[in-house]
Write a protein that binds this DNA or RNA. Structure first.
Lengths: 359, 359
DNA sequence: TTGAAAGCGCTAACAG
DNA sequence: CTGTTAGCGCTTTCAA
């Protein structure tokens, strides 16, 4: 029974016609509001009222309806309700990359928060593809009541143009100046400043930045903050090494790091830091005696490496939860509240120490 | 303008009425098929045909329609289409716990595969709550065309009863005997057997199992396999320690592990193994000289710990992808193909070695 | 308190 | 090739 094409197929499909003569032997007709009404001997309006808990239904009728519904295992069709109500009780999340722990946590936070309010979550991954992201966003938005766009790569002008169609919309790690689109972000610059301050305080004059993926806006933020931070000091030297975002990237960069002669390395994220830690170790350097290493993110592992990693923690779940709150406010026609920038918290552990005194 | 309640509210809501006299100043009426038809001077049917690429439309008309649609930024409403077509182009995934890397990868694999076929993904988390899981599943299924249930905790009888309403349904890490519901799972027992075989081959006679969460069926599988595996040998001693699934759980168990006197520890998963590694190290034991440690899952980190972890790898992404393939087959009325059990692959690294010779 | 009827936006037989 | 018409399943006025 391979039903191809899009013909409305007898009682094979999901929705069978109201009264087809060719019903399958068993009377497994789909439970619709009409059938329940019929069974209970009332109108569809009444069934609707009962299902929605309207108090203006005679107890006796209500009971009859409930019994019929129960017997037929009836549940109102969410799709039909959505059409009639003009809302889906669903929100969408678009992320660039589902493999990124950051987005996984956002997803979780958002899903849980939305669930609490009886809403479902539609997820889509843009694969870092800008063109596709815009399409996806529009489509996802239409299937739902609101949208959360995480680390959108869509150019400002385009996003601006789209923002009306996407509303209610909440932006994560991305701001849209000149609009009222709420935005929640991590203040990477502040995190970097904290890290640099910590390192400078330990006497480090020469830092090497292990840069993340070129397309990454969070890398751009960090890099810019690093440059600015160093530029304010006259005796601060900054080396930048293109690296990446994985353990292997960090590992591979160890040699180059040593060649820069820096006494401290600021890694794009924790994974890169771990890789560097490992590579440096293999090269016979002791951390933090010979060289200090910092990460970024505070992934769960960071406290367990050897040595435990000094890093900046960011509230990943919180982003998701708060995104929901903003969205919920918007869905109810209220103001979304002020934008926020989460300040990373510097966690000083054992991978950083005083700068070695050169001879 | 806080619109509360569920009244159909003028032009404020998502869907404005077709021709309200009180339209907001700007003519931002929502683009519907009707309005496009009107603008293009054709019938709605024609617009529908054009939007769906029907070849039986006069080029001239088609162009006019496309122009009008373009001008109004018209996109057919997915919700309305879903109702009319009886399909949503969406599938749902229910997982017990979004924080679990296993499910994150399944989610990713499924999302990507479904996306390739133009389908969206609805996710919901059951929070290990059996009652809620069943409700969620039914609801999610109704919002979509098919369902993937990962590591369902729903009792067999109940799941059996539900299976018709949930179809098309694909089960992950769970089988439903007596039905044709396709199931994809990881053969934990085989993985355990491989690990035990490896350990026994190295001369270990006394193993300690660091058990996972009690509610976990995958723990049950592993434990059972372990017992069975040891029971076949006369000189095999197995100690079982309730532990958990996190690094800290493993870490906390180190002392107890030593007390069992075992020469090898089989951890519930990699995280627990890492914790044990760390705890054992602090107690002054050398791995693998004094004691061997194995994990399970082969999370990305496993190769980078000190020492690198011997573990069993499982194809997490693949589960998601294949789940989609099964579902897709089902959606097209075909057979879903044979069930499969992915065999974990034993990765021997440096956390295991010959059993120390006792004196 | 209840039912009839219109409508949400779209698709698909059926005629022409 | 195009329009008319009748739904998809549900909600919600409006009248009774």
């Amino acid at each position: 029974m391979s039903l191809t094409g899009k013909r409305r197929s007898g009682s094979d499909g999901q929705l069978a016609r109201t009264s087809g003569p060719g019903r399958t032997g068993a009377d497994r007709a789909p439970a619709t509001i009409g059938r329940v009404a019929e069974a209970a001997g009332v109108s569809r309006a009444t069934v609707s009222r009962v299902m929605n808990g309207s108090p203006t239904v005679a107890p006796e009728l209500a009971a009859r309806v409930r019994a019929a519904a129960e017997a037929m295992n009836y549940q109102p069709s969410p799709v039909a309700r959505s059409l009639a109500l003009g809302r889906t009780s669903t929100v969408s999340l678009i992320v660039p990359d589902l493999a990124n722990p950051m987005f996984q946590d956002v997803l979780r936070g958002l899903s849980q928060a939305a669930g609490t309010y009886g809403h479902r979550l539609l997820v889509a991954e843009s694969n870092e593809n800008v063109a596709e992201e815009a399409i996806l966003a529009v489509e996802a938005r239409r299937r739902s009541d609101g949208l959360v766009l995480a680390s959108s790569r869509v150019p400002e002008a385009e996003l601006h143009a789209l923002s009306e169609r996407l509303a209610p919309l909440v932006l994560l790690n991305r701001e849209l100046p000149g609009t009222s689109v709420p935005s929640l972000s991590v203040d990477y610059a502040a995190g970097i400043n904290a890290i640099v301050g910590h390192l400078r305080g330990l006497g480090h004059r020469h830092l090497t930045y292990l840069a993340g993926p070129v397309a990454s806006t969070s890398d751009r933020d960090r890099r810019a903050a690093l440059r600015a931070s160093c530029a304010t000091d006259t005796d601060c030297v900054l080396s930048e090494l293109d690296c990446g975002s994985t353990f292997d990237d960090g590992h591979a960069a160890a040699r180059a790091v040593v060649d820069t002669g820096a006494t401290a390395v600021v890694a794009f994220n924790d994974m890169v830091a771990f890789g560097a830690l490992s590579g440096l170790h293999e090269l016979g350097l002791a951390v933090p005696r010979d060289i200090s290493v910092t990460g970024f993110d505070d992934i769960p592992f960071a406290r367990y490496t050897n040595p435990p990693l000094t890093t900046a923690s960011i509230p990943r779940n919180e982003l998701g939860r708060q995104a929901w709150e903003r969205l919920w406010a918007l869905l109810n026609g209220g103001p979304a509240g002020h934008n926020v920038r989460f300040q990373p918290r510097l966690l000083v552990r054992e991978s950083t120490g005083p700068a070695p005194t050169r001879n």
